[in-house]
Design a protein around this nucleic acid. Structure first.
Lengths: 91, 91
DNA sequence: TTGATATTTAGATAAACATCTAAATACAGA
DNA sequence: TCTGTATTTAGATGTTTATCTAAATATCAA
């Protein structure tokens, strides 16, 4: 779960997640939304992939990235449990 | 909001939040839960404080740390919005 | 197979970060 | 006011991280 938080600690990567919330995108399409170089975006994608927050699938020349809904939900739940304030536990 | 995620990207700091979920603690009591030095813990506390995730209040010789419930709730909401998967938006 | 497009890998660099020890500050009690 | 306790600040160090350019790999189309 540490990988998840590390992955989310970078603003570019969070923005990538938000983009993928709209629709699946190729690596190049993702890179087009940023000013940093394609290799840098590729690196960020690798980190997101390693954290299993996104999946990739080759489609011809392109590689299409998509959110891994399952792991996103898991992260959401974990975050809720971690951050939930004192009064939240109901026995 | 970037400060929030940066603050949460470190396992020690997440553990501190979990400790403070139980009850308010002095800096020293917090440090006792870890093997790293007190100055290091102090540094982590400063980062959490800067992100407004915790508050501090001097009480005699000690400084008591507590969760800032408001900001925690905000962070929770922001995270939910950020991570929420595609189907989540209901018009 | 050759050429063009899409993406990643390699290698380098500078900035940010976690950690330490030693010293400074703040407070309480005698 | 002196002493002891609690905490933070300063300064140093090694590691991790984000970024870049150049080169490698993979796929498609002619």
């Amino acid at each position: 779960m540490n990988d998840t938080f590390k992955a989310l600690s970078d603003p570019t990567r969070r923005q990538i997640i938000q983009l993928l919330k709209e629709r699946d995108l190729s690596a190049g399409e993702i890179a087009d939304h940023f000013t940093i170089s394609k290799p840098s975006i590729s690196h960020h994608l690798a980190i997101l992939k390693n954290a299993k927050l996104v999946r990739d699938e080759r489609q011809g020349q392109s590689i299409i990235y998509s959110l891994n809904a399952t792991v996103i939900q898991e992260a959401l739940g974990w975050f809720l449990g971690m951050m939930g304030t004192k009064g939240d536990e109901q026995p």
